[in-house]
Design a protein around this nucleic acid. Structure first.
Lengths: 194, 194, 194, 194
DNA sequence: CATGAATGAGTCTTCATTCAT
DNA sequence: AATGAATGAAGACTCATTCAT
């Protein structure tokens, strides 16, 4: 098997498992088995569990970006861009409510391993750039700040949605939440005052 | 030694350690040692690690509620209440940025153990009640919805603040964030339209 | 509560639990709880788990002897005595198939604790005396030897019956086994030769 | 090292230790040490202590069958076969008096673990087949029944012999017991009545 | 590239036993 | 006579990681 394909298959499996269950609950054994290789083979491709998890995480981020960014940018008016942003973000969250948790875990590991999560900064910056740009087009006073809040809100919602469990999800009126966010985040102080 | 005091001492230590480091990184051994009792003694008071973590988490929640709720309610005008809410929430987050992560971990464990996080629902409800009330006084159209968003935003911010690490925290202009949240969340649609 | 009654209640509970489950699977905690006293209280009455088990075992033996011996001796002819012996032995075995196992466990413990199972010898002697007497009355050539074999057979049957499990018990045609034992064990060599 | 050899070496050591001392008294640590591998290595080959014990038990059974069955079948007349059966059974019992106890323990564990002792049924059937055949050749009325009794008697004797301890073994006149069993078990009702 | 055997350190948990009160 | 808090030792089991082949 080509080196590339195996690596990618491993990343896919790892991302899937790590997104589903906690870091410490997913063993290298299980990943190897699901990929269809041996534990030894797994370590040939990734020098440690942490290394694998980190790469799997950013593999997930890239997937997300690749899927969402173009869709958003293809919208015409700033309003439509923002609507698309909300729409696709929610879609992603509802489908991957556990990614935030995985992110957190990898971060936690990065601390133990001493070396930070370097790639994250670049990613976050890229994100702020894009989303901040949209808020700027919307004429919002502090676009970058608002982009930070928007990102935080999404992650927080994912968490609460996750913890609510199947029963508690009735609480979450997704459409209403989207509308409310739309209204709140495009709000421009001056409008009121004016 | 009285049962109550030991239990409380254990809960305090556990909360501290679990808030600082990941669930799987804190061993019962370490907790016991820090409390100053034997591992056996620890298990005498809490039948399992999960049980201890769960109780420690809600012990933390209660501390939070006991500290924050009265302060908020003692403010006079709705605006002041909301300001106090933001103020003290941020203060708490900045001091306990890892509590959200611990919360998530306990939730994760609760799934493994089959029994949900029953106490959480009650706690969340109480929270929605109080915060929703404030938004209602502010004349916001969907107070409960906004309370949900507010709570999610806080948790999300805590996460991002946590992950930003010491270097990245320059990004976070706390005062600006507070102001922005204050403006956005008290925003009333009708004002604009009117 | 009087010292005597508590002791006896403990013995009863212990015998019941030890007969049902393995020695190492029954904790002092469980015994205490079932008796309705504290662990400390249990240790007040019996200095160790082994001591308790030993006494519980012989308490069981005594119960058995008290129940069975008189019934057997009250029969008239030797044949009837032997029939009663078989009858009541089977009855006891079918009701307490696990007593043999408990016996074995206590014996095993006695080795670990260095001191043998002194009381057993006396008990075994008493048993051989009684059962040997019956075989003697039956005119069997080596009554004592046969009593040993009879006792061993009963214990062996109890074991196999136990291990057979609920499904395998169809194998055991109790009545046929009784008849066969009756015939075989009262067999007198001379009859054949003569 | 080849998988097969290590596995077999483990089984041998385990059988030896489990036959010598009680299940709960033999730790995985000890087995590993005696085999000369690490605890982890032991668990690599056997997923749990119970699994190891079970396999070791049947390994012992097979040894027994492999040793005894051919010897018995090679005898010529039914009488000689029966004599050989008794002879070699006693030899085995005297050398492995604790195997019955180990058997019992594994059975006990099998209950705790929910899954029965499936392999035992097959083994017991094979045993009944062989021994029942011998009794049939001897012209005994209920050969299968008698085979059951014979097997039970052997196990029971092993137990009593075990419990008698070194001092009490004077009681056991092995040769006399063999003779007595030989006479009793080949006894044919009709001979008497006829 | 990949395997599978093996390691070793770590973790939770159980439990008989003790002792101050 | 009895309690309950606490101890300490031991045990099963997991798992990331290594390495000869």
């Amino acid at each position: 098997m080509g080196r590339k394909e195996t690596r990618e298959r491993i990343l896919e499996v790892a991302l899937e498992l790590f997104s589903e269950r906690a870091y410490d609950d997913v063993s290298m054994e299980e990943i190897a088995k699901k990929v269809g290789i041996s534990k030894g083979g797994l370590f040939y491709h990734f020098s440690s569990k942490y290394e694998l998890a980190k790469e799997a995480l950013f593999y997930g981020f890239e997937q997300w970006a690749k899927t969402i960014f173009p869709k958003i940018l293809s919208a015409e008016s700033p309003e439509d861009k923002f609507k698309a942003l909300i729409e696709y973000s929610f879609e992603f969250i509802l489908n991957n409510p556990k990614l935030s948790r995985f992110f957190l875990e990898v971060y936690e590991e990065s601390i133990k391993h001493g070396n930070g999560l370097g790639q994250w900064d670049a990613f976050y910056e890229e994100y702020l750039e894009l989303f901040g740009g949209i808020f700027e087009e919307l004429g919002v006073p502090n676009p970058r700040l608002r982009a930070m809040l928007f990102g935080a809100l999404l992650d927080g919602l994912a968490l609460h949605y996750l913890v609510a469990g199947d029963e508690g999800r009735g609480y979450f009126d997704i459409e209403a939440l989207k509308r409310e966010i739309f209204e709140m985040f495009r709000y421009r102080e001056r409008e009121i005052k004016g």
